[in-house]
Simulated scan of single mutants.
Amino acid sequence: MSSPSANTAPTTTRPRRPLRIVTISAVVTAILILLFGVPWWTLVAGGPNWPTPVVVVGTLIFALALVGLPASMFLSYGRVDRDGLHRVGDTLIGVVWVVFVWSVLGYVLRLTLMLFGVDDPVRSRISALATIVVSVALVLWGYREAMRVPRVKYVDVVIPRLGAGLDELRVVAITDTHYGPINRAQWSQGVVDVVNELDADIVAHVGDIADGTVDQRREQAAPLATVRSKLANVYVTGNHEYLHEAQGWLDHMDHLGWETLHNKHIVIERGGDRLVVAGVDDATARGSRQASHGADFGAALAGTDPTLPVLMLAHQPKQVTDSVAAGVDLQIAGHTHGGQIWPFNMLVKLDQPSVHGLSRHGERTQLYTSRGSGFWGPPLRVFAPSEITVLTLRRS
C-alpha cells in the first residue's frame, strides 16, 4: 500500500492579503460614511430640528443612497448589459459630491447668521435649505454642461523653432471622450461636426477614448471615421484604455483611418518646412503589463532630425518631465478634466503639474492641458467646462 503522500499531487495556493483587503475596505467605508454622513447631519439631523417625519424620510433617502452607490458600481463592473445600473452609481457619486461640498460650505453661512444674531433652529434651517437649492441648481447645470457638445477654445502657441511654412498651423485637439455607459453616439457626431468646421491641419485625440472595449463602444466611436484634416489625424492612448483593451483601441483607430502614435512619430510638411508629430503611451501603460506597451520617448523620437520642432501627444500632464528631457517644443495632454466637479481640481493639482491651460516647463517645452471633451463617471461638469481646442502654432 502506498502512502497517502505518494498519490497526492502538490498543490499551490495563492497567497492571501487579508490585511490589505481589510485596509482598503476600511478606507472605502470611511470615505462613504464621510461623503454621506456630513450632508445627512447638516441637512437632516444636526441642527435644523425638523419634524420627525422629515427626519425619517431624509434619513431613509441617505441610507438608500449609501447602500445603492457601492452596490450599483459592484454589480455593473465590466458588464455592458448593466450600463443602466452603472449610470445610477455614476450619478449618485456625482450628486453626493456636490451635496457634500456645499454642506461643508453651508457652515460658513451658519457662522455668518450666528454673527447677525440668528438663533437655531432657524439658522440651521436657512443653511440647510440654501445648501439644497444650490446643490440642485449645480447638479442640473452641471448635467447640461457635461452632455452638451463642447465649446471651442482658441489658443495661440509661439514656437520659435517653427519654420515659416508652418506658421499658423492649426492643431485641433479632442481628448477624454470617455464613451461609456451613457450612449453618446449623437454627442460624438456633434463633436465631429464641430471639428470638421475648424479647418484643421492636424486633428489629435489625446487619449481616454472610452470606458469599455471596442465591441462595447463601437457605435459611439464610429463618427471618428469621418474626421477631416489637411495633414493628419493622430491618436495616443490614455490611462483608461489600459483598464480594458489598449491594443484593441489602437487597432480600431487605425481601422478608422487615424495615425496611431504608439511610441512613434510622423513628419508633416507644409510650405517646405517640417514638424515632428510624436506620441507616447500613457504613463500607466507599463504597469498594465500589456506586451510592448509603455511610454517610451526615446522610441517615439528615434531617427528624428534634432533641428526640427516637436509636437508631442502624451495623455498625462506629468509626462511633461520626459518631454522636457527629450527637447519637445509643445506637449498636448488631457487627463485632468479641469477637475470636472469643483473643487476636485484642487486634488488633481496634487498629482499633476497643470490642471488646464498653457504652461512653460524648462527653457523650450510648453504644455497645453485640455479640460477634455467628454466626462468620466458622473455626468456632471461644475466650473470645469469641456472643450474642443484649436491650437494655432506661431513663430512669433
Rank of each mutant, 00 (worst) to 15 (best):
G165H: 08
G165D: 03
G165E: 03
G165S: 02
G165I: 02
G165V: 01
G165W: 06
G165Q: 03
L166K: 02
L166E: 02
L166S: 01
L166D: 02
L166G: 02
D167L: 08
D167Y: 09
D167V: 12
D167K: 08
E168Q: 15
E168F: 11
E168M: 11
E168H: 15
E168W: 09
E168A: 15
E168N: 15
L169F: 09
L169M: 14
R170A: 11
R170L: 04
R170I: 07
R170E: 03
V171C: 08
V172I: 13
V172Q: 05
V172M: 05
V172A: 02
V172S: 05
V172C: 04
A173Q: 15
A173W: 00
A173F: 02
A173V: 14
I174K: 07
I174C: 09
I174D: 06
I174V: 15
T175S: 15
T175M: 13
T175W: 11
D176K: 12
D176V: 12
D176T: 07
T177L: 14
T177P: 00
T177C: 02
T177Q: 08
H178G: 06
H178V: 08
H178M: 07
H178P: 13
Y179C: 04
Y179A: 13
Y179H: 15
Y179P: 03
Y179I: 07
Y179M: 14
Y179G: 07
G180N: 12
G180C: 02
G180Y: 04
G180Q: 12
G180D: 13
P181A: 15
P181N: 13
P181F: 04
P181H: 09
P181L: 01
P181V: 05
I182V: 14
I182C: 01
I182G: 03
I182N: 10
N183V: 08
N183M: 10
N183A: 12
N183W: 11
N183Y: 09
R184T: 10
R184M: 07
R184A: 10
R184G: 05
R184C: 01
R184Y: 03
A185E: 10
A185Q: 12
Q186D: 12
Q186M: 03
Q186C: 00
W187H: 13
W187S: 03
W187T: 04
W187M: 08
S188K: 04
S188N: 09
S188M: 06
S188G: 15
Q189C: 01
Q189E: 13
G190H: 05
V191G: 02
V191I: 10
V191Q: 01
V192F: 09
V192K: 11
V192N: 11
D193G: 09
D193S: 14
D193W: 08
V194I: 14
V194L: 06
V194F: 01
V194S: 03
V195K: 00
V195T: 01
V195S: 00
N196A: 04
N196I: 01
N196P: 07
E197P: 00
E197Q: 15
E197Y: 00
E197I: 00
E197A: 14
E197L: 12
E197V: 00
L198N: 10
L198T: 07
L198P: 06
L198D: 06
L198C: 09
L198M: 08
L198W: 10
D199A: 14
D199N: 15
D199K: 14
D199I: 06
A200N: 07
A200P: 10
A200Y: 06
D201A: 04
I202M: 00
I202E: 01
I202C: 11
I202L: 14
